[in-house]
Design a protein around this nucleic acid. Sequence first.
RNA 1: CGGGGCGUGGCGCAGCUUGGUAGCGCGCUUGCUUUGGGAGCAAGAGGCCGGCGGUUCAAAUCCGCCCGCCCCGACCA
Length: 563
Amino acid sequence: MRASRLFLPTLKEDPAEAEAISHKLMVRAGLVRQLAAGLYIYLPLGLRVLNKICQIIREEMNAIGAQELSMPVLQPAEIWMQSGRYESIGEEMFRLKDRGGREMVLGMTHEEIITWLASREIRSYRELPQVWYQIQTKLRDEARPKSGVLRTREFIMKDSYSFDTDAEALDRNYQLHIDAYNQIFKRCGIDFFMVDSDPGMMGGATAHEFMAPSPAGEDEVALCKCGYAANVELARSVPGHPDYPEPGGEEIATPDARTIEEVSGYLDISPDLLVKSILVITDAEPVLAMVRGDHELQESKLTRAIGGFRPATREEIRDITGADAGFIGPVGLDIRLVADESLREGVFVAGANKNGYHLQGVQPEVGFRPEWADIRRVKPGEKCPICDQSEEGLRIERVIEIGNIFKLGTKYSKPLNATYLDETGKEREIIMGSYGIGPARIAAAAIEQLADERGIVWPAAIAPFAVHLVLVQPQDSQQAAMAEKLYADLMGAGIDTLLDDRKISPGVKFTDAELLGLPIRIIIGKRAVAGGRLEVQSRRSGEEYQIDPGEAAEKIGSLLAAL
RNA sequence: CGGGGCGUGGCGCAGCUUGGUAGCGCGCUUGCUUUGGGAGCAAGAGGCCGGCGGUUCAAAUCCGCCCGCCCCGACCA
C-alpha cells in the first residue's frame, strides 16, 4: 500500500476525551474514530489489525475442528423469553419492535440462537460432538462505555459453542478451547494468562477467563507464584491471624466512633480485631454480612451466598437494628447472619446495635450463630489457598479480559429443548459450552503492553503492515527507483509493506512511522542510494541492520519470523 | 443511575469572573524556496461559540431547561 493513497489520518496531539494509552494511540495513529459513546469506526489501518487477529482466531478454531457459521444480530425476543434471559438481563439489552409490532432484540451474545439451531437440527448422539463458531457483532447497552475500544456498546466477538453428549465430552471440548486460546493469544504476541472466573449467578458451572495484564484493564486477579490465578470476584486466600483478647461480651462506650478506623483508633486496637457489619436487603429478607475489620466485602461472593441484594438505606438500618450504621452488629439481631470464614475463630469488637456503643470480647458461635461463607475480598500479601507457601503471598494485578470460557451444561438446552437420542433411544439434553474472544481487546491490550513514548509497537503477527518503507525524497529519481524495486520485491515475497511515498518533509514520515509502530522500518534516502545498502530498523528493539537490496525480501522475511 | 468535569473553525486550546469587533497553535488551500527527524516566506479559506428559551439596547459571556462527551462509582449473560 502506498501512503500517498492510504486513508490514514494521524494526529499530533492526544484527543481530549481519551484517557487510556490504547485509546489515545488508536485515535492518533488513525486506526479508529469515535462516532458516539461506545461506538467506533474502524479506519483502514484499524480494520487491518482486526482482520489479522480474526484470521489467527479462525485458523486456531478450525484447527480444533470448530466450524464457522454466522447468526443474525437482530433476533426475535421470544427465544430470549424462553431461556429466561429476556427478564433477567434488563437494561443492558437493546430491545425494539418490528413494523408488525413483534418484539425483537439486538443480540448481546448468541447462546439462545445457537441453541435454537441445535434444537432443530441435532437429533442423534451420532451427530455429536459439534463445535460451531462465528465472528459477529454484539450489541450491549453498556451503562458506561469507556477506555476507547475496551468497553463499547457495539463490538465484534468470536463466540463458539460446543455440543456434547455428556460431561466428559464437554471437558474435552473445554480443554481443546483452552489449547486453542493459548495458541491464539501467544500468536498475537501479547502477555496473558488464564484465571478461574466467576460463572455468574447460574452457579455450579466452571468458568475461566483469559487476561492480559494492563493498568487500563477493568478486572483484577489474584496470582501466586505456584500458579494459582483467580479473578478477585472469587479468589480465595488464607488471612493472617491476630492475637485475640479474652472473651467477654461487655458493652463499651465508643462515642462518635463509627468507621473501622475511628473505632480501632479510639479503642487503640488493630482493625483485624473488629467485625465490620454491613446490612443488605435481598428480595426476601434483610441480611447482615460480616467481614473482619481489615477486610473488604466482595459483593460477587456475597451474591453467590445469598443471591441478589442491595445495600440497606439509612432508615432500614435504624428500623432493623435499632442503631445507625457504624454501631450495628450481629449480637442479639434476629435476622439472617452471614459471616466471613476469617471470623470463625477469634474474639472481636462488634457494634452493639445501640448508638455510641460497641461490644468487646464477642465470640462467633457463642455471641451469635451465623452462616459461614467466604465473602471477603483477598488482600495482596495474604497466603495462597493452594500452596500456602510463598513468602510474598498473593499479588493482585489489573487485567484486560480478552477471552472467557464457560461450561454451560444444560442451562440453554433445557429451556430451549435441545435434545438428542442416545444409544438406547433415550432423549437427553445436549451438554453445552460457550467460549468468547474480543479481537478489539487483543489489539488494545497489545498497544497497552508494548507502546512506548513515541507510539505503538505492534507484534509482527497483528501489525497492519509488516514493513514501513520510508522513501525520504520521492522527487529523487534514484531513491524512488530503489524504493519501487524494493516495494515490488517485498510485496512479491508476500510481505505486507507500507510505502511512504508522500511528498512531505522527512521528519513527519519518521514520526508517523514511530507512531504507527510497524515492526520493521526501512529508510531509502541519500545514504541508501550512495552506499547501496538498506537501513533496516526494528521498531521494538531499535536494532539496526544493513542489508543488501538484492536479498532484502529473504532477509526481512526471516527477521519478521524471528520477531 | 449517583458524583465530578467539559462542549468555541478539522484537531488542541484561550476568551466567560467584569456582556459590546471571536482569537492562538497545529492542520488545510495557492505560490516560491526547502528536503535524513514534526521546514521557511507570502497570500488565503474555514466558526448558528452544543440546542432551545429567558434577561438586556446588546449574550460565547448572565439565568433556566435540554442534549452530547469524558472521568469516578454503581452496573457488566
